[in-house]
């Protein structure tokens, strides 16, 4: 495969390991219909990380050595240098906080086209067709880059990670990273041990229809009987009832759970933008005309204060029946 084109995936590392979206992108890159070779670009990373990447579809791994923790300026310089040196065909980033600032910095440094927040990717001969929502999700656009490498950020959870056979070739890239001009004074983790809504198969969200902070305990109960995580609309975060990491929507998280249950959420475009790729949507709302019902598979019209406890009861009953 001499003329195989390299597709790079920038791998984001956290204290807990590889961010899921990086593995999802490796799987998607493997599935693109082009004579390609999928490579992971990883800043550092121990043997476990390299094994994980290899197992999840990386055929080649560029390990960038000599970089400290993530800083926008140093990462931009180093990634841009790597791209110039190896000239890949495509470079993909997860549309995370890091990806959404790093990709444009790199693209603009190299004068390359970049498409943000893709929800699908496909090939048309050599061109990467990048599909993304715009206008708050009201329209979908297919975009392609005029420059090479073609670059895109891709939303988490629109693709699934997969396992592959084979061993990745490892290339160690030693760099003399410039010193960053930024200084992280403090990191403030979102309060509490909140279960991540991004990885959950079932997400139950509460909106302004819930009158008190304590009422979220009801959602927690429902979530625990379904094995799900609790999310919310933006006003709830603004009230300080839930951490920012639980916010669903345009300025929060985009999620694709198997089941999304919106409770007392009106369904503004900004909220809808976060749940477009949920497999099934259930909405519970007392207003029969709530916009959330437009995108719901199952609509339950009624008072959440009656319905949610009834659901918890019903599920308890089911469990007992099954036992």
């Amino acid at each position: 495969m001499t003329d195989a084109k390299e597709i790079w995936v920038f791998v984001e590392l956290t204290s807990a390991g590889i961010r899921q979206v990086s593995l999802q992108l490796l799987a998607k890159a493997r599935a693109l219909e082009i004579n390609n070779r999928v490579a992971a670009l990883v800043p550092g990373g121990n043997e476990d990380v390299l094994k994980e990447l290899s197992k999840h579809g990386a055929e080649k791994i560029y390990v960038v050595e000599g970089l400290d923790g993530y800083k926008l300026d140093t990462y931009t310089e180093v990634i841009a240098e790597c791209i110039k040196k190896y000239n890949p065909h495509i470079v993909l980033f997860g549309a995370t906080h890091i990806g959404r600032e790093l990709a444009p910095s790199v693209a603009s440094s190299l004068r390359l086209g970049l498409t943000a927040d893709c929800t699908d990717l496909s090939m048309q001969v050599d061109n990467l067709i990048q599909t993304r929502p715009a206008f708050g999700g009201n329209i979908i656009a297919d975009i392609s880059c005029k420059t090479f490498p073609q670059m895109a950020t891709v939303r988490p959870n629109v693709f699934s990670a997969k396992e592959f056979d084979g061993e990745a070739e490892i290339i160690r890239e030693k760099v003399n990273a410039p010193k960053s001009i930024f200084e992280v004074i403090e990191e403030i983790k979102a309060q509490g041990e909140h279960r991540s809504i991004e990885d959950a198969r079932i997400v139950i969200s509460g909106g302004r229809g819930l009158k008190r902070k304590e009422d979220f305990e009801m959602l927690e109960m429902l979530a625990s009987s379904l094995g799900g995580a609790v999310g919310c609309s933006r006003p709830i975060v603004e009230k300080g009832w839930m951490p920012k990491s639980a916010q669903v929507g345009q300025s929060g998280k985009t999620i694709s759970p198997d089941l999304y249950i919106a409770i007392g959420v009106s369904g503004s475009v900004q909220h809808q933008a976060g749940i477009k790729s949920a497999k099934k949507i259930v909405a519970i709302n007392s207003d029969p005309n709530a916009p959330i019902f437009d995108i719901a598979d199952y609509a339950l019209v009624g008072d959440l204060y009656e319905i949610v406890p009834a659901m918890i009861e019903e599920l308890k009953g089911e469990k007992n029946d099954r036992a």
């Binding site: 329209i139 656009a141 975009i143 005029k146 809808q272 019902f293 199952y298 609509a299 339950l300 319905i307």
Partner: peptide, 27 residues
């Protein structure tokens, strides 16, 4: 510009929307 829009279309977001009413609908 370094990118170009090749196609736009409207997403298929409307869903079937089976309706249930009130507490009775829970089951």
């Amino acid at each position: 510009s370094l990118t170009r829009v090749t196609k736009t279309y409207t997403p298929d977001i409307k869903r079937k929307g089976v309706r249930f009413e009130g507490k009775e609908g829970v089951k």
